[in-house]
Design a protein around this nucleic acid. Sequence first.
DNA 1: CCGCTGACTCGCG
DNA 2: ACGCGAGCCAGCG
Length: 116
Amino acid sequence: MNKQSKWEQIYQVVKQIPPGKVATYGQIATLAGYYRQARQVGYALHAVPSDDIPWHRVINAQGKISLNFEMGGAVQRKLLESEGVVFTPASVIPLRQYQWQPVIDPREDQHQEELN
DNA sequence: CCGCTGACTCGCG
DNA sequence: ACGCGAGCCAGCG
């Protein structure tokens, strides 16, 4: 297992996040099979290879953008807002409403399969 | 090879 | 509610 394939698995999960939804670093790590390696997810996204990966839909567990303004935080926020995500006055995204739920119920799961 | 840093998270007190 | 420490691991000097 080299770092390349590891990051690819992470990117694979990130690609599945639908527009208008977000996921946390820890969530991505867990889904990719790397529980507790949220930090590596952030690292992988920092070195994101191409632009066909919706990196902007990944935020921290507090529902906030982890980047500084200069680092791209402004860009990330703008991208999310353009997808319909609404921030609270405190710049927080209500996870209860926007967090991506890969599988909710078996029937939804089937529907999801068709989409993939 | 060693130590520090970082787009993080979780559990405890 | 909030701070702190530990767990994780790739890059870089």
